[in-house]
């Protein structure tokens, strides 16, 4: 994990179908920030995350990650980032353990099991994900946040279909991450009550 990461976006302009989104958006955030992107439905919250992650290309604008220009080649940012989109990227035919091994091959079994215990998935380790509920599948995707050492987290509605305990766990993890110098950008409708750190709200 980088000790001091920063993300600077200037004069962004995203075009989606017939609409202009985030036109002229500029902001700068750094390690230790939890950035909440707020806005109405269709304001471009998810698109902004996709642009940062490199799924979408912006029409105009510049993106700097830790001082490096990643506007054209997002690779340096992607090496150091996790992106969780609406579709969570968990393969339904693979078991919980296989899914996580796919994303995090270097993690030790004991580490994997302790995280899964924490998330309440330890009894489902060898169950194919298609047999789990939506909330449980979501937890499988979120388990990557415990298993990786990436700095930048881009989370699209991470609290969706989580129960109260799951929400508390995730908030705790986010807090822990930014304390260690991580940078979290997320879209949510939820007030992050337990996070008492620098919480930047970005209204689109």
């Amino acid at each position: 994990m980088q000790s001091s990461a920063s993300l600077t976006i200037s004069d962004l302009w995203i075009e989606r179908g017939e609409r202009d989104l985030c036109k002229g958006l500029s902001f700068s955030v750094q390690s230790g920030d939890v950035v909440r992107i707020l806005g109405e439905n269709g304001a471009g919250k998810s698109s902004l995350l996709k642009v940062i992650a490199g799924v979408l290309s912006p029409l105009e604008g510049q993106i700097l990650y830790s001082g490096e220009d990643v506007t054209l080649d997002r690779n340096p940012l992607q090496q150091d980032a996790i992106y969780l989109g609406h579709s969570i990227g968990v393969k339904s035919l693979l078991t919980v353990a296989e899914n996580l091994r796919w994303y995090c091959p270097d993690v030790s079994t004991s580490m994997l099991y302790s995280v899964l215990t924490q998330l309440g998935l330890i009894d489902q380790v060898d169950v194919p994900v298609k047999k789990l509920s939506a909330g449980q599948a979501r937890r499988v995707a979120l388990a990557r946040l415990w298993l990786n050492k990436k700095t930048l987290w881009l989370l699209d509605e991470p609290f969706a279909s989580l129960d109260v305990r799951g929400v508390a766990l995730l908030e705790e993890r986010i807090q822990q991450h930014v304390l260690l110098g991580g940078l979290v950008i997320l879209t949510t409708h939820q007030d992050l009550l337990s996070i008492a750190l620098r919480d930047v709200a970005l209204l689109l």
Binding site: V55, G85, H86, I88, G89, V90, K91, L93
Partner: peptide
């Protein structure tokens, strides 16, 4: 098809 539906295709794009 399946990778597109469950989002793992997207994860390949952002994997670095």
């Amino acid at each position: 098809k399946e990778d597109y539906r469950d989002g793992s295709l997207e994860q390949l794009v952002v994997s670095g």
